[in-house]
């Protein structure tokens, strides 16, 4: 995509999409690393996969943006429906003992939030290219969500794991 055929709206949309995918990727990476450190290996592996997916999407958006000049926004200048970018796993939903099913539920929520975001952007835009691009991204997120749902159905049922810390506090005399 070159500068001549880019509207300010599309440039703004692409800047937000890049940030959304980049934030999702970095958070999944961070989670994979810390879950591995806490020996929750199935969940670490799953988050690693999700990071790779987000990276793949990030590259697609970057390719699409090409040499387009995008607005140079600081982290706090992006306009998100909530505090963080829609596909970013929220810290409140995490625990080192979370099950693979819970991790998938979290990722499913992220995909759905991203789909809602892209769909909303398309609905609010008057620019034909922005509408088409945002709709395509929303459909892709919908596909990811459906894939996750298939994976969750295939997963053997697991009892929720205990969240309370049962490791006694250190009590020096």
């Amino acid at each position: 995509m070159s500068n001549t055929d880019t509207t300010a709206e599309l440039a703004n949309f692409l800047a937000h999409s890049l940030e959304l995918e980049s934030e999702a990727r970095q958070r999944y990476d961070e989670l994979a690393e810390s879950m591995a450190g806490h020996r929750n290996l199935p969940v670490a592996e799953f988050f690693r996969r999700m990071a790779a997916e987000a990276e793949h999407h990030l590259q697609e958006v970057a390719e699409l943006a090409g040499d387009t000049i995008l607005p140079d926004l600081k982290a706090w200048e992006f306009d998100w429906p909530e505090a963080e970018a829609p596909e970013t796993s929220s810290y409140e939903a995490l625990h080192y003992r979370m099950s693979l099913f819970e991790a998938m539920q979290l990722a499913l929520g992220n995909e759905r939030a991203a789909e809602r975001y892209y769909r909303g952007f398309a609905d609010a835009s008057d620019d034909a290219t922005t509408v088409a691009t945002a709709t395509r991204f929303a459909d892709e997120e919908l596909g990811h969500a459906a894939e996750l749902e298939r994976m969750m159905t295939a997963l053997p049922q697991q009892a929720a794991q205990l969240r309370e810390e049962d490791d006694d506090p250190h009590m020096p005399e």
Binding site: E33, A93, H95
Partner: peptide, 11 residues
Amino acid sequence: KPIWCPGCGHF
């Protein structure tokens, strides 16, 4: 790499 618990606010 941080060794904090996953979900720790310090991240």
